[in-house]
């Protein structure tokens, strides 16, 4: 007795791959190219505007690009750019660990909620940039401090999303886990609740990553004598606009690249989620 009511099933052994919206593959490529063309057009417009600029405030794109290349191939790569990015990533990693741990505690043991929610909501509302000058005065401006500041700022979206994700787990999954595992908290939490909450958790991680970059820049603008953020600010103060824009672009590219990598990793981890969504949409 077989009931052939499945959707188009992938061949055996092949993991499920979510389809894009356009049915025809060719069309997707055309669209991608068109998008890039628009972007290139904007850069071209920048170039023109820069060439004809009389105020001296907008260097043409080609100059900026050249400066970018110079920075990335010169010594500033290892003295400024890479350490900044590394600090941001370290802070993000640290913040994620803190955020997820605290998020699991707050999200799973709901009895604590009325007690812990108000202080958590307050702490998270404090703008982390405001803590940077204070932290500098209190602890001195060192590498460790900057990483910690980034971590403590970036942990909030991770914490809140982990907490939220765990709370919104379908009770049915929890019930099934209680029936089919030993029933201990670690089993139910680890085998059912966390996988179910993963989409929400990665959403928080993504926001945390963006926040790490922001905090990295801020901490360097306020309290540093090296790094990408410092480079940008210093250039502005010296009215050296080309390196300033170059720095901003490098930062933008780094952010874009990291986000891309993150999205790719997220998609692999959440193949099932994409599939489910696709089904609901279709």
């Amino acid at each position: 007795m077989t009931m052939h009511e499945t959707r188009k099933a992938p061949p055996k052994g092949v993991p499920f791959r979510p389809r894009g919206r356009s049915r025809v593959r060719g069309l997707t490529v055309v669209r991608a190219v068109a998008g890039m063309a628009v972007f290139a057009l904007l850069l071209f417009a920048w170039e023109l505007a820069g060439r004809h600029d009389t105020t001296g405030l907008l260097p043409p794109f080609s100059d900026v690009a050249a400066e970018m290349a110079a920075i990335l191939t010169g010594e500033r790569l290892t003295t400024d750019v890479l350490p900044s990015v590394l600090r941001a990533l370290l802070g993000f990693a640290l913040g994620s660990v803190i955020g997820m741990t605290a998020g699991v505690v707050l999200g799973w043991w709901r009895r604590l909620d009325p007690w812990l929610r108000p202080p958590v909501e307050f702490l998270r509302a404090v703008p982390t940039p405001a803590l940077v000058p204070i932290a500098v005065v209190a602890f001195g401006a060192g590498n460790a401090l900057r990483v910690w500041v980034i971590a403590l700022g970036a942990c909030w979206p991770v914490l809140l999303n982990t907490m939220d994700g765990l709370r919104r787990v379908e009770p049915g999954y929890i019930d099934s886990a209680r029936v089919y595992t030993s029933g201990r908290t670690t089993a139910v939490l680890g085998r059912a609740a966390l996988p179910a909450a993963l989409p929400q958790i990665t959403s928080g991680l993504r926001i945390g990553l963006a926040l790490s970059l922001i905090l990295m820049v801020i901490s360097e603008m306020i309290a540093s004598s090296s790094g990408l953020g410092y480079l940008i600010l210093q250039s502005q103060r010296l009215y050296a606009l080309t390196p300033m824009y170059a720095g901003v672009l490098i930062l933008a590219c780094t952010g874009w690249l990291l986000t891309l990598l993150f999205s790719a990793a997220e998609r692999r981890a959440l193949v099932w989620f994409e599939g489910m969504k696709g089904r609901n949409h279709a």
Binding site: M221, L241, L251, A252, W256
Partner: peptide, 30 residues
């Protein structure tokens, strides 16, 4: 419009992760 979306996609995806604070100097200059 999914066409408009495709056209804007690369631009949006590039501008989006730019930390606003990185633009502080740019804003001050402008």
């Amino acid at each position: 419009s999914s066409w408009a979306d495709s056209l804007a996609k690369v631009t949006v995806e590039f501008l989006r992760p730019v930390p606003a604070v990185a633009l502080v100097p740019v804003a001050v200059v402008s």
